[in-house]
Structure formats: C-alpha cells, structure tokens
C-alpha cells in the first residue's frame, strides 16, 4: 500500500496554472443555478397557488406535477430533455438550455412545496383582514401574504438553491463548459485526477459556505422586530 501511495506523484501545477479557467467554470455553475432558481421560484409560486386552490381541477394537476417531477432523478431528466425531447420535437436545445430547463423544472417542484407550506403557515385572519379592507385576491397576495411568506421560506429556499447548485455539476456530462468539465479536461490531459477533482470540491464547498452565510445574513436583515 505504501508503495502504491508513493507511486502517485502529486502535481498541482496544471490545476494552479488554470485557476482562472476553474473560476470561470464555477461562474457558469453559479449563473446557471441562479437563473434556474429564479425561474423555479416563479413557477413554484404559481404551482403552490394552484395547489391551494379551492378547485380540484386546478389542485390535482399541480399535485401530480410535484410528485412526478420529484420522482425523476436529475440525470435521467437531463438526458430525457437533451436527447429524448429534442429528437421528438425536432428542435435541439443547446446543452446549457437543457440544463436550465431541467434545473428550473426540478427546482419548481421543490419551491412549490416550500411556498405552499409558507402560505399555509400564515393565519387565515390575515386574508380576512385584507379582504375586509377591500383588497382583491391579487393585492392580498402581493401586500399581505407574500411579504410574510418570504420570511418563512428563505431558509428552505436556501437549501433548494444549494441542491440546484449541486445538481448543476451534472451539466458537464452533456458538455456544458462548467468547472467539472474543466477538471475533467485537466485530468485527461495531465492525469492529475486527485488534484483536479479536489479543486472543484474545494470550490463547491466554498460556494456553499458563502451562500449559506449570505442566507443567514438575509434572514437576519428581514427579521421583524
């Protein structure tokens, strides 16, 4: 075993020389995640509202959507959209488009449940008070329900974001130029698997740590007296 360890010569050079490529790759992961997360929030909010609708015809499809999407592994979903849908519909997505579609849809199933929980956590009296002042359904959501929901859903939404960021690392499989692809290429060219994959592991842990800290700050800032 000792001999085997010694047989591997650490060579951090290729990784350190390409630090800028790694960071650029990481930026792709971050913005794809950010965009997908934003879309997932919009879509998820809509689905949450449908799930709370008084009409079963709206409630059930929303429920089925959430169950269905959450049952599909990300990788399967990615292949289904990138290879499967493309060939049926006859238009091909770019890898990055496919990734954004998959991450947004997957994320929306999770954010929908979070928003639903947040909206349900708000006392019914809030709606009554708002409606009694003559505010309509939409104004009630906008001025009374959502501002209160936001404060409840920030921590779990933060988890969703981190989940999507981790999911985004799969994009390199369909050749999106993210940090994982940079690491894979370094490994192929210089055979430094340990160094290359350590680098992206460190970047990912750092990103998650920074993001978690920002969520805590945001939570504290929005906290009501």
């Amino acid at each position: 075993m000792t001999a085997a360890v010694l047989a591997y010569v650490f060579n951090w050079g290729p990784v350190l020389d390409r630090w800028d490529e790694f960071l650029l790759g990481a930026w792709v992961d971050v913005w794809v995640t950010g965009l997908s997360f934003a879309l997932a929030c919009c879509l998820g909010l809509g689905i949450a509202v449908l799930r709370l609708s008084g009409t079963a015809l709206l409630r059930w499809p929303a429920f089925a959507y959430v169950q269905l999407i959450r049952g599909v592994p990300l990788l399967v979903f990615l292949y289904w959209v990138y290879f499967g849908i493309a060939i049926v519909v006859g238009l091909s997505f770019s890898p990055i488009e496919a990734a954004i579609i998959v991450l947004s849809l997957t994320g929306s199933a999770y954010t929908a449940e979070i928003f639903r929980g947040g909206l349900q956590a708000i006392d019914r009296g809030q709606v009554e008070a708002s409606r009694s002042l003559g505010l309509g359904r939409i104004a009630t959501y906008r001025h009374v329900l959502l501002p209160q929901t936001i404060r409840i859903v920030i921590p779990p939404l933060g988890n969703t974001f981190v989940g999507l960021l981790k999911g985004a690392t799969l994009m390199s499989i369909i050749a999106v130029q993210d940090m994982v692809l940079v690491a894979t290429n370094v490994n192929i060219n210089y055979f430094t698997p340990f160094e290359a994959f350590t680098a992206i592991a460190v970047i990912l842990v750092a990103l998650v740590a920074v993001f978690s800290a920002s969520v805590s700050v945001l939570e504290r800032t929005l906290r009501l007296p």
């Binding site: 009296g125 009554e128 009694s132 404060r151 009501l224």
Partner: peptide
C-alpha cells in the same frame, strides 16, 4: 370590521 384577534399585518 374589527376582529377578536386583531389580525394586524405583522410585517
């Protein structure tokens, strides 16, 4: 209308 539990908007 004035409610038993006030129903003020906490935010």
């Amino acid at each position: 209308i004035v409610f038993q539990h006030f129903n003020l908007f906490p935010h």
